[in-house]
Amino acid sequence: MNPVLRTEGLNKRFGGIVVSDDVNLTIAAGEILGLIGPNGAGKTSLFNLISGVLRPDSGTIRLNGQAVNGQPLYRRARMGVARTWQHMLLFRSMTVMENLLVAPRHYVGESILQVAFGRRSVRAAEHAARERAHAILNRMALDDSADMLVTDLPFGQQKLIGLARALMNDGPLLLLDEPMAGVEGAAYETMQRVVRQEAESGRAVCVVEHNVSFIRDLCSRAVFMANGRILQDGPVEELISSSTLTELYFGV
């Protein structure tokens, strides 16, 4: 069976800085892969390459076996690459619900012709999107905040909304960029639970995270990156206990 995501010999450099050096990575359906490494290791750049924000200098990215290199960012999202951002990038002037409503894989409101002449299909699609959004918010116990301005929520809940927005895309791949940074308490528990549920439902999940206990709790497999290269790919416990990697990570 094909893995959901497979990268083959992915290379990317900005001038003299190598952000991706022959990266070969696979993620299978239902798996939560941890992506760890020091700052500047190329973790976020790898997400940008996979989702289509950046174009690789060479190498192939396959989604369910199909090469997606030539596809721009928005098409990859429609093909099922959902992601979150380290800095959330929520739509600040919109409510929680509105943030989620623009996020389905296919959004009818995008086409002016459909809005003008396809009232019935627009209404049906809006209804379906609203149901989906409510279901996702419900899982996060945030249904009461649906009509709040997203910037009025506490930080941890904003992080959850970032995840909720990505979950509106029901595609096979979910990329989470530092979902736990600055998150604690109830939001932490919720984040952990929802990410686990998503994997159990068959999604391939990849998490960039500095919070080692989060990685340890959720992932069985992890990848350690430094200087754009994958140094080790294996069971989480093995990576964490490796003294060379700890040295690289903490500089001790």
């Binding site: 924000v53 999202a77 951002w85 929520l90 919109m94 623009v102 959004y107």
Partner: peptide, 11 residues
């Protein structure tokens, strides 16, 4: 508000 995030949602 956020063009990059908007595009990455498939828009």
């Amino acid at each position: 508000d956020e063009e990059l995030a908007f595009t990455a949602l498939g828009r």
